[in-house]
C-alpha cells in the first residue's frame, strides 16, 4: 500500500496544486489515463463544492487530501472543517431531458462524482467532513 498526503488552502491556487499532485502521483504509481481522469474529475467536483458551499468562498481554510494506492484500487480521502454536509444526500437533477433554456445547471458536479467513481462515502468525525472516493484499477 502506498500513501501520500497534501494540505491545500480553500482557493483556486489550492486546486491547481492538488491537480498537479494527483497527476504526479498517477504517473509515479502508473495509474491509467482513464482512472486519472475520473479521479481528477471527482476530486475537483468535491473540493470545488467544499470551497464554494462549505467554506463560502473564504480562502484560508484547510483541506486535507490523502491518496492511497491499494492492490486493485486508488482511494482519495478529503477532509475539511466546514459545517456538516453530506453532498451525496443532495437531490439529483431531475430535468436531464429538458430543453436547454429550462435546464438547471446546478447539481451536475456531484452527479458526475457518482458516475465516475466505483465507490463514494461520507461521514462526519472529529468535527470534520470526511469523503472517500474510490476507483478500481483495471
Amino acid at each position: 500500500m502506498k500513501n501520500q498526503i497534501i494540505n491545500i488552502k480553500s482557493r483556486v491556487s489550492g486546486i491547481e496544486i492538488m491537480n498537479q499532485k494527483l497527476a504526479k502521483i498517477c504517473e509515479e504509481w502508473k495509474i491509467s489515463k482513464d482512472v486519472a481522469f475520473s479521479m481528477n474529475l471527482a476530486l475537483e467536483e468535491i473540493v470545488t463544492n467544499i470551497i464554494e458551499h462549505g467554506y463560502k468562498g473564504v480562502e484560508d481554510y484547510d483541506i486535507i487530501i490523502r491518496f492511497t494506492l491499494e492492490k486493485d484500487k486508488l482511494r482519495i480521502q478529503i477532509k475539511d472543517g466546514s459545517p456538516e454536509f453530506n453532498p451525496f444526500d443532495v437531490e439529483e437533477p431531475k430535468d436531464f431531458n429538458a430543453p436547454v433554456e429550462e435546464r438547471e445547471i446546478g447539481g451536475i458536479g456531484i452527479h458526475l462524482v457518482k458516475k465516475f467513481t466505483d465507490n463514494f462515502t461520507y461521514r462526519r468525525g472529529n468535527n470534520k467532513n470526511i469523503i472517500t472516493l474510490q476507483k478500481n484499477i483495471e
Binding site: L41, E44, E45, T48, V100, R103, I105, I108, G109, L112
Partner: peptide
C-alpha cells in the same frame, strides 16, 4: 469538469 460544462451550456 462541471464548471467547464456550465460555460459551454451558457
Amino acid at each position: 469538469n462541471s464548471s467547464g460544462l456550465r460555460i459551454l451550456i451558457m
